[in-house]
């Protein structure tokens, strides 16, 4: 008798799981920590306008989003970097066709503590600082203090972008790495908090996280060019050197509710939300 009861329970459990996964009025979005606030804002407005539809947003990093898309546990992956060749291959093996939608732009801000006198750096100096060649603030015009490097963990698209475009200066053959002594923090907020409390720290994150507790550094391509602050108009005009596109990835071109949501993000209203969350709209 007990056995039969157990079996019944088991069958019941599987059945509820199967039904839960097939709900057409709900979508799961997962991925980039940079984009969580943005996607959450979209989801809230979208759900207000479409009662009965449900959008769940979780972070974890671009890589997390990609692997969820590949394993079929989310409908939309948010990513602050392009999908990797390897990931496309893996997705195809599992019968999933990643489809890329560019939804916004983001400037990467390099931030220091407001007490730090250093307010502008060249990309060359940034590469030197983050690879560990420059280890004292006095080498870039600051006080005689050790530089504390803050970086995101390797599951972050921001980490990958910063390495490829700042440390390696877009050179795919370069071998530069973050200094091994760089502290790896698990979220942008953790970097923001540490920079706010540590006058020797330097970190990087999406522009949306800048607050009065941190000082964004103006960046120049080289010594001769103009130092540009990370601001929305400078990213749109292309003057600010460290900016990147933000993507949504879906399985195949979006259908039904996923399409409705993606269209919403690209609509004038959706792009207004982009601006309101301190990112840069792609359509103006």
């Amino acid at each position: 008798m007990f056995r039969r009861l157990g079996l019944l329970l088991l069958v019941g459990m599987f059945a509820t799981c199967a039904f839960a996964a097939k709900d057409k009025n709900s979508i799961q979005i997962k991925g980039s920590d940079t984009m969580v606030n943005l996607a959450q804002a979209w989801a809230e407005k979208y759900m207000q306008e479409n009662p009965g539809n449900f959008v769940a947003v979780t972070g974890g990093g671009s890589g997390t989003g990609m692997s969820s898309l590949i394993s079929g546990t989310c409908d939309i992956a948010m990513s602050s970097r392009n999908i990797k060749e390897k990931e496309i291959g893996l997705a195809k093996n599992r019968g999933i066709e990643p489809f890329e939608i560019k939804v916004a732009l983001d400037g990467l801000a390099v931030v220091v503590n407001p007490k730090n006198p250093v307010g502008k750096l060249t990309t060359e100096q940034l590469a030197g600082i983050f690879t560990g060649r420059i280890s004292n603030w006095k080498e870039v015009g600051g006080e005689d203090k050790k530089i504390v490097l803050l970086s995101r963990e390797v599951n972050s698209g921001t980490h990958v972008y910063f390495k490829e475009h700042v440390l390696r200066k877009n050179n795919p053959n370069a071998k530069d790495e973050f200094a091994p002594g760089a502290l790896m923090l698990s979220s942008s907020q953790a970097i923001a908090d540490e920079v706010a409390g540590n006058p020797q720290a330097i970190g990087y994150y999406g522009m949306g996280y800048i607050s009065p507790k941190q000082k964004p550094v103006s960046v120049a391509k080289d010594e001769k060019s103009e130092y540009v602050a990370p601001a929305i108009e400078n990213v749109i005009s292309g003057k600010y050197p460290i900016s990147r596109p933000l993507f949504l990835y879906t399985n195949g071109s979006p259908q039904e509710m996923i399409k409705k949501f993606v269209d919403y993000t690209l609509s004038a209203q959706g792009q207004d939300i982009v601006l309101a969350t301190d990112f840069v709209p792609i359509k103006r």
Partner: peptide, 21 residues
């Protein structure tokens, strides 16, 4: 000094690791 432990490495990186890499 800051250190990185075995456990933290697995926890922090498993999400990113491409399955099969």
């Amino acid at each position: 000094q800051p250190v990185r432990t075995l456990t933290a490495t697995i926890a922090a990186e498993m999400g990113e690791a491409v399955v099969g890499s």
